[in-house]
Structure formats: C-alpha cells, structure tokens
Amino acid sequence: MTTIRTFLIASGACLSLAACDFLIARDRDAPPAMEADTPAEVPEPATDPSESAPETADTDGPVVVASTATIDWDAARADMAARSGEDRETGFQVASGNSAPPVPVLLPTGIVVAQSAENGVRFQPMSDGYFAYYPGIDYDIVVNGTNEVFGTTGDAEDGDAPDLMFTPTMTGAQVTFSRYGADYLVEFECKAAQTAEGVCITEQEALEITEKLVIAGTR
C-alpha cells in the first residue's frame, strides 16, 4: 500500500514537471508580443529658398488727394468793384462778406427763362461753394463753384491746360475752368434727347455763355 502511494506521488510529480516543461517550451516558441502602433512621422514639405513671399500691392503710384483751394479774394473783390456800376442781371441777390459762399460767385447774364419756369430758378450756397439753376427753353443751365480741389500726387503743373474745357455729355455738354483759385463747372442739360443730326447747344454757344459769366458775390 505504501509502495502504490509512493508510486502515485512520484507519477504525479513527473506529470507536473512534464507540464511545466511543456509550458516553458511554448513560452519560448511563442512570437514576441506586438508593440502598439505609433503614428508615422509625416515629413514637412521642403521649401524652396528661392521662393519669395507674396508681393504686396504697389503703393508708389499716384494717389488721389482732396484739398481746399486758396482763394484770391483780393482779385475777386477788385473784379466785383469794377462791375458794381454795370447793369447786369444774374437773377440772384448774392450775400457778401462772411455770409457769402466760400468761393467767388460767377453767374451767367442775359439768360432767357420761360415764364412758366421762372419759379424754378434757384441759387443754393454750399459748404464748399454754391450751385445755381436756370431752367431754359431748349436746355437748363447749372453753374457749380467749389473750393474743393482733387488732384493726384506727382501731377505735373497744369499751366498749359486750356482756360475753358468743353466736353460733350450724354445729356448735353459741360464747360470747366478755374478762376480765383476755385473750380467751376457749367452744365447744359438738353430738354430733348440729342441726335446725330442736331444738338441742343453747340460748343461755340456753350463757350460764349461761360465766357460771359460775371462775378455776383465775394467775401
């Protein structure tokens, strides 16, 4: 009985050893544990040193600027005094002194206004000048004067510019000029649409009306 018990114990021990050896062998033959995947590094795109930064807009070109004209009030007052005794009807009584517009007021004379449109004649002082409106038979006349001058940096002197500049427009014509340091615009607005066969006012007529403008107010 003792011999059988000893035999069983010995057999169990052998089986235990054999199982241990089998587990050790499987552990040695097992493939290595997989490591956690790590994100691959993405190489940064190569930069070409020859490439330059985007060019900025060129700010060295002409720049439009607005300025207030210097008015020659002495010349305007002298011209006003020279015509004070003349009978020239401009249609308006313009204020003088500090109440006058900030530019010498030039207005047309001898303008024929239809009786039905007499109430439409008007004069309006502005912060930078004035405008006058004369409703006519074939065309309306609008006179604008301003001390606000627009120019560009680097402009050449305009000493060779014509005294009066006539320009046809879609609605008639206009004449521009400068005097006493202020800028003036005389517009002729046709009552009817212009055609190739005829216009409501010719260049010669527009220039004659503009040349006959008289000074009607000054400071």
Rank of each mutant, 00 (worst) to 15 (best):
T153L: 07
E41Q: 07
A114C: 09
T195P: 05
G136H: 04
A46K: 07
N147V: 10
S67F: 04
A75S: 15
A132V: 07
Q93C: 00
M80H: 11
C14N: 06
P45F: 02
G217W: 00
S116A: 15
V103P: 00
A33H: 01
P101G: 05
T176R: 06
E189K: 12
D87I: 13
D183N: 11
P135K: 09
A36K: 14
D183Y: 01
P49H: 01
E189V: 15
T195W: 03
F188E: 00
T218G: 06
S16N: 08
D138H: 04
T6W: 08
G97A: 04
P168Q: 11
V214M: 02
R179G: 01
G110L: 04
P45C: 09
V105I: 12
G181L: 05
C14G: 13
R219E: 13
N98H: 11
E44A: 14
A182T: 02
A100K: 04
P32D: 14
P32E: 15
K212N: 15
E187T: 03
D138I: 04
G120E: 15
S178W: 00
S127M: 10
P31I: 07
C200A: 09
V103E: 03
T218S: 13
E203C: 02
A36S: 13
T171E: 11
T70R: 09
P102H: 08
F123M: 11
I9Y: 03
T152G: 10
T6M: 11
M1T: 12
V113W: 03
A182L: 07
Q124L: 14
A18Y: 02
L8G: 07
G61C: 02
D163F: 02
L213N: 01
F123Y: 15
A19H: 03
V64W: 01
S96F: 08
T109R: 12
I24W: 12
P43N: 05
I71M: 02
R28Y: 11
P32Y: 09
P168C: 03
A216I: 03
G110Y: 01
